[in-house]
Design a binder for these strands. Sequence first.
DNA 1: TTACTTAGTTGCACTATGCTCCTAAGTGTT
DNA 2: AACACTTAGGAGCATAGTGCAACTAAGTAA
Lengths: 229, 229
Amino acid sequence: MPQKPIICTIDVVLLCLQGSALHVALLKRDKPPFEGGYALPGGFIHPEEDADTLDAAARMLNEKTGIASPYLEQLCTFSGAARDPRGWSISIVYYALVPAELIKPDRAPGLQLQPVDQLRTLPFDHKEIVLAAVERVRSKSSYSSLPVYLCGEQFTLPRLQAVYEAILGEPINKVSFRRKMDELDMLEPVEGALEAGRANRPAQLYRLKNQYRNRLSLSGRAMTANSDH
Amino acid sequence: MPQKPIICTIDVVLLCLQGSALHVALLKRDKPPFEGGYALPGGFIHPEEDADTLDAAARMLNEKTGIASPYLEQLCTFSGAARDPRGWSISIVYYALVPAELIKPDRAPGLQLQPVDQLRTLPFDHKEIVLAAVERVRSKSSYSSLPVYLCGEQFTLPRLQAVYEAILGEPINKVSFRRKMDELDMLEPVEGALEAGRANRPAQLYRLKNQYRNRLSLSGRAMTANSDH
DNA sequence: TTACTTAGTTGCACTATGCTCCTAAGTGTT
DNA sequence: AACACTTAGGAGCATAGTGCAACTAAGTAA
């Protein structure tokens, strides 16, 4: 006995760092419900051969925002009668981390960045979803290398440390931080490349080692290194 | 533009410990596809007011196995065209941990326990799902109090340590283990209750503190204590 | 009473973490 | 050219956390 049709959607929580505050990308809705309101990029699921919802999320995100996120992982699935005025629904939610420079507002009409720590009420249960994603990112950041995906392709250790501190909301000891990064063994120095342009000793530029670049997380299992060993 | 109907199911990975091996509960299927095969307890989603898929999973599990699991948490959602011969489908998967004594085969016809480390091929993508659940449980066990849900209501610390060791697959230092349990601050001794019947010093019985008993995890967020503080 | 077994604890060695201070390497100023 | 200033990066030590071994505690069996 197959069920009657269920509203099945995908939503993506796209996060980036502006200044020292995590921001979430919201899109102006051009259809009811909540037409004109700002909500998470998302859409109905269209079953396709050879594609699961991870592929669908990546494609949907790219179509709606022009962004191909190197890190995309399933958060969890939200369901219930109250979350969508059209009736009982489920939404499979993914979250993505990108460097802020990758978000070009001209490329995506109606795109807006909001700081996650002063989030206004959002359509559907999207505020709750964003907060769940942020909690996940903060939690994973405390023992893994997740935050590197918020930096550009090349970055200095002081910059990366500032990113960690922004996410975790507390200062980190410089020496311990560098030791930890060394243990994780995910970064490699870019030969002869130093950060220029400032009136002090330039910092070494680093990048993700090849095996960690441009990976999408499969089936909710993370591909970031963590500090177990 | 609403989508055409999608096959939406819920599946539950019910785990318990027999001897020192994690086992998963499988049910004999009485309908095609895979009629007669053993698969995860699951079923179609029937949208209902005031219930999300966590409630649905708890109710479905109870109906099919007679078990009301105190720990039930969302694992993740699996999707794709290959996982179900009837076509593209999604399954929202939960996992549950129960003491083995709670599983009474007479209460649930067709129920069978299989050790997760020598799992034969299962219908659909259920083997992959079980392995993902086991990986999650092992990973969470290394920093949280998850394994207490595999014990009965009262248990000794040596017993609980054996449970941890069975899950993690490696011996744990006795003193460190007790220190950690003490830090987590989830257990309380049962006044004057000792484990009897063996030819040696009896061990103190413990139980979960009240605030941790009989909770279902909300929206994928765990309610177990972990070692951060 | 003695041997045996497992529970539970105490103290110490070792490992990991955090902190302070030092040196390095650039720019800007005099 | 010399010096002040700033931030990068690292060395050495103090402190905290973890693991180990040896001990005491409390029961049964002979």
